[in-house]
Structure formats: structure tokens, C-alpha cells
């Protein structure tokens, strides 16, 4: 499933125009993105939390050559699914 499929599913479920459905999907994604960009957690009840985590610098290895390389500290997004979501996919 891709973004367009998501929008058309919304359009079928709720009585709004296709354009509005696509617009809302786009807006939801962009608000989530800009919030995460600020380093803020996004909590969606019944779905899960998007959290920005800080990773420390560490040493890695090029798996091909075995050469040791430094990995710089960075921020990554992780998603923690809610209990509801976890149960839902195992029904």
C-alpha cells in the first residue's frame, strides 16, 4: 500500500472528496515530520509513539573490508507500537 492507496481508502470510508482525503494524509504526515524534526515525541493513542532517540558515537566496521570506521553521534526515529496495535496484528 502506498500513499495514494491510503488516501483513496480514506475517501471511500469517509464522505469527503478525493482531493481533501489526499490533502489530509499529506498534512498528517507533514505535521508528524516537522514535530519529529524538532526532536519532539509524537504520541498517537491506540497506534503508537514516534520517538527521536540520540545515538552516541561508536566504532563500526566496513563489513566488506573489515576496516574500522567511526560512526558519528546521530538522532534516529523509532516507532513504539501501542499495546492495542500489537494485539491487533496478532488476532
Amino acid at each position: 500500500m502506498r500513499k495514494v492507496d491510503l488516501a483513496s481508502e480514506i475517501y471511500e470510508k469517509v464522505g469527503i472528496s478525493k482531493k481533501e482525503a489526499a490533502e489530509i494524509v499529506e498534512l498528517v504526515l507533514s505535521v508528524v515530520k516537522t514535530t519529529l524534526q524538532k526532536g519532539e515525541t509524537v504520541k498517537i493513542a491506540g497506534f503508537g509513539n514516534f520517538v527521536v532517540r540520540n545515538k552516541r558515537a561508536r566504532k563500526g566496521r566496513n563489513p566488506k573490508t573489515g576496516e574500522e570506521i567511526g560512526i558519528t553521534p546521530r538522532k534516529v526515529v523509532t516507532f513504539r507500537p501501542s499495546q492495542v496495535f500489537k494485539k491487533y496484528v496478532n488476532k
Partner: peptide
């Protein structure tokens, strides 16, 4: 940010729908 705040933020940018309608649609997305 919570879901309620997300709905608020999205609703501010969509003027053709009420907040309640936006809420239903945001829920439908997830």
C-alpha cells in the same frame, strides 16, 4: 505531541472541514 494536538494542527490548515470531521479522518488514516 498527542493525537489531539495533531488533529488541532491539521484542522488549522484545512478550512473546508470542521474539526470533528478532521478528527474522524485523522483516525481513519491510522
Amino acid at each position: 505531541m498527542t493525537k489531539a494536538e495533531l488533529i488541532e494542527r491539521v484542522s488549522e490548515q484545512i478550512h473546508t472541514l470542521t474539526k470533528r470531521q478532521t478528527e474522524i479522518i485523522v483516525n481513519a488514516v491510522f
